[in-house]
Nucleic acid binder design. Structure first.
Lengths: 336, 336
DNA sequence: TAAATTAGAGTTACCGATAACTCAAAAGAG
DNA sequence: CTCTTTTGAGTTATCGGTAACTCTAATTTA
């Protein structure tokens, strides 16, 4: 592998002069500069960023950790983050925890040993606390994305989960539904708690009793097992509508319903949080509370970089992004 | 930041002994080992992988470059690659070129300066040639994914594009269609050429004349502009079916058709290459040639790592993965 | 019991880059 | 024409690790 010493030898200068040419620092005559440049070209020289990071104590690499690379919410967010990182001169290391604390921990160890300059962190849940503490211990700046973690003081870009959930449920209430099931996420995840709270709030505001039997807590990725669905639908007064706490849970339930011959929205209405990306273009079906995923990435990245470069830590800042209710055909008026 | 020297000082040993404890090499007494381990824990020590890479000339990082992070084919592939990398002890740096040569070049420069041990490379197209040459110059092992690049000798994991295309078109022919349009990808991309060839082959085998007016070459990400669609549909004998060279082109065309009041499959049948991930679960609509995306990632990564670790370069190997014809409701029998 | 091993460390040099310092020659000032 | 300043470099030390070598004390062997 070619090093500055090879370049220096061929160009008959010192390594330091080569370094100056690379970084446009210090004084180098035009003649020398041209010669060094030419040798670098000829030998296809590429600087070793490991060596550089070692002495500069800066890698120019940021890390983005998401929880599900197959979910369009996160891939769209990733694109926003990536575009912004590139625009501001950083490289991006993308990690995917699959909603799994063990994988997340591995990524945090990797992040620490790579000495990245900062992390955009979509935590798997409250159990991410110790991982974030590790980052704090090592003074790695980070910004929380999408989910909050109790006990962690940090900049955050989060969605309006409670309000979004309330609007979705109110939409169902307006359509006449009273038995509305909540297929929530794990109570370990802040957005799941907020969406649960929004659900209760909507019911309360409309004088509908909260019924525990209609509430299930699932995993954002895996959804629901068949026996739980049997139990939910087998009740004396089964639900006429379902609010799914995210897009994948909604997909799972729709699939399960179909499997037992139930149609959406004819037999049950289904609404959920997060849109489906291009799938909604093909088939504008699901009524959703859509979040500005790309903006999550852009704003998070901007915030992270400003944290790194300006150290403007006059207290962590929280940015709350609104969600938009998009009514499509998966929800319909309850026939009396 | 804590270094082995800090650990060494506190544990009252030399830095080398700390290094031996970290790597489980050389001779260290149990007593010393325990003491060093304890100090590492207490000080939350994490090794600096930049320093380590510098001396070892190995980073244990591999890079995966995909062309569209929002396309489920690539995110599924990414997951396969990631799972495999982790299983075999490597970390993964994910890059997204957005089908853009300039972005791809930036990533290649980053890859070179990071001194990754190898690259899983889904090229944007034939123009990726010079980027791959750069990798060759620097002796970075790589495996081509999904697309071939003429002039590059390398290991490849590619799909059965021609055969898959032929089967899709034959499916349309069997349904009675004779005027079948091809919305192909850029001729700059090997899979687009192969799918084009498969299209021609199917027509020829069935004695249907190839008509240039039915063939358009588009971009895999952007699809089709409205005036081109006008032109396509405004012909004397307009097509009754469309074969789209990938999923995003299909989505675009279906959307455009709807925008002018045409329904699929009632007015036109549409089939395409690549499935839509979970979107097909929600709405099993598009007739597709589905590729084993996850397997692309797994096999590519396994091949890459074996290339790195065993240097088993008895000539580059090509693995060809089959595609599966899945008939759904976007294609139907032509009414006479 | 003396010689030969071996265990358990420490020392030194190096990976590839850059910061900080040095220094001679050229240019500018008085 | 001498003295000062500026220009255009080179030298040395360092970042945080590890390989290769060295060295001493303990253990084993004959």
């Amino acid at each position: 592998m070619i090093t500055i010493y090879d370049i220096a030898r061929v160009a008959e200068v010192s390594a330091m002069t080569v370094s100056r040419v690379i970084n446009n620092t210090g004084r180098v005559s035009d003649k020398t500069r041209r010669r060094v440049r030419q040798v670098m070209e000829e030998l296809h020289y590429v600087p070793n960023s490991n060596a550089r990071s070692l002495v500069l104590q800066k890698t120019n690499i940021l890390s983005l950790l998401i929880t599900d690379i197959t979910n369009p919410f996160y891939t769209t967010l990733a694109r926003g983050a990536e575009d912004t990182a590139k625009r501001l001169g950083y490289r991006l290391l993308l990690g995917n925890s699959d909603e799994d604390y063990a994988k997340e921990k591995d990524y945090v160890d990797m992040i620490l040993s790579t000495r990245v300059d900062g992390v955009l962190f979509a935590p798997a849940g409250d159990g991410s606390f110790s991982h974030l503490q590790q980052l704090e211990q090592h003074r790695i700046p980070f910004v929380l994305l999408d989910r909050d973690v109790p006990g962690i003081q940090a900049d955050r870009i989060i969605g309006e989960s409670r309000e979004g959930a309330r609007r979705l449920v109110e939409h169902l209430l307006e359509l006449g539904h009273r038995r509305i099931a909540l297929l929530g996420g794990s109570q370990d995840v802040s957005t799941a708690r907020e969406r649960h709270a929004g659900y209760r709030e909507a019911l309360k505001l409309n004088d509908v009793a909260y019924d525990e039997a209609l509430v299930l807590h699932l995993n954002y990725r895996d959804g629901l097992n068949p026996s739980a669905l049997d139990h939910l639908l087998g009740q004396e007064k089964p639900p006429t509508a379902i609010f799914a706490a995210n897009n994948f849970i909604a997909l799972g339930i729709i699939q399960s319903l179909r499997a037992r011959g139930l149609q959406v929205p004819d037999d049950l209405s289904v609404v959920c949080f997060d849109d489906l990306g291009f799938a909604s273009v093909l088939n504008p079906f699901l009524t959703v509370a859509a979040q500005p995923a790309y903006q999550f990435g852009v704003l998070g990245m901007e915030r992270l970089i400003s944290l790194i470069e300006n150290d403007d830590s006059n207290g962590p800042r929280t940015i709350i992004l609104p969600s938009e209710l998009i009514v499509r055909s998966s929800s319909r008026k309850l026939e009396p």
